[in-house]
Design a protein around this nucleic acid. Structure first.
Lengths: 177, 177
DNA sequence: CCGGCCATGTAATGTGTTACATGATTTA
DNA sequence: TAAATCATGTAACACATTACATGGCCGG
């Protein structure tokens, strides 16, 4: 979460990160959206070239010593807005942890307890990170800050719910065995 | 959730659903694991044949008029237990709703409100279903019932968290605009 | 000057869905 | 008997990751 290339006294989150190289796009997605989105280089580089050909993104090497930086064009921004308005594609659920717990009787109580403890610990760790990020974004003043808080808040609620679920379920399993 | 082919006074959830055809396997996965897992026919049929060749599953047409039914073999059960013990493969996150909200400043406040209302409504509907299922499974007495309750409980906690998040976020957006 | 990070790409590979084709059986 | 449901399968396609190859730049 260290801010390379950060401008002092910045007001805009987006301004701060533009233009970017494919590499920094990947880093930023991991750092900022990591809780709910991911992209691999295998997607990013070909897509970037496709977007340049389509005029939605333009190379912009301004003041960099290495790497090609890109910035979104006005047409690209229009396309982005259109894409954001499209219906959300349904992603088929696939929760390996719940699948294993569902077969708990096959798996054994000990392994299930371990799964639940692991789930609780992961949520506790995630919660701490999100709380830090929440505090950080709360101090930002640009137009998008309120929306970034909404996404972080989703993570906070989800993490707290998972912690409560894990504890409750551990107690229930201990009672029943 | 109607139980075709159900035996009266059943005590075991698994016993009730074995042997099964590829078709009923798919239906059951949707009905029972639908909240956290999914499989398509394109996966199920080839896999079933592979498992038969590997001796992990065996055809068993007992008392059926149409379709091939299968049941798990002892070797198959051992394999299942081993698979359940394997580390959970990390699935890269991809939450289209949070991605859209993250770009809320591009998308516009109205569309974001719609997304949040939709999210809240979906969670309310899901919560009702899960509460019904929870009550149903609570009455079951077989060894696996406690674990099935754990998975349903995960859904309950997640749904309640999503409802709270949506309401809180709607209030926050209304305040800030 | 070397280790770690920045940076770019692609080929292989796996995975899984969707769409379609086909027909049997049950039920209204 | 017509419609709905049960049932089986596959081919095409989209998507995405992983692994690898390659090299420049910068701080200690």
């Amino acid at each position: 979460m260290t801010r390379r290339y950060g401008t002092e006294g910045r007001q805009s989150w987006a301004r701060d990160r533009e233009p970017m190289t494919g590499y920094t796009i990947r880093q930023t997605i991991q750092e900022v959206l990591g809780q709910f989105w991911s992209e691999s280089y295998g997607q990013i580089y070909p897509t970037l070239h496709r977007l340049v050909r389509a005029g939605l993104v333009a190379p912009d090497a301004q003041g960099r010593t290495s790497g090609t930086t890109f910035r979104i064009t006005p047409a690209g921004r229009r396309r982005l807005r259109a894409l954001l308005r499209e219906p959300i594609p349904a992603t088929p659920p696939r929760n390996g942890r719940l699948l294993r717990l569902f077969f708990g009787a096959e798996l054994g109580a000990d392994a299930c307890v371990a799964l639940l403890e692991e789930a609780g610990a992961a949520a506790v760790a995630g919660l701490a990170t999100l709380e830090r990020e929440h505090a950080e974004v709360e101090r930002e003043t640009d137009a998008g800050a309120a929306y970034r808080l909404v996404t972080i808040s989703a993570g906070l609620h989800a993490a707290r719910a998972q912690i409560a679920w894990a504890e409750e379920s551990l107690a229930a399993l201990r009672r029943s065995t």
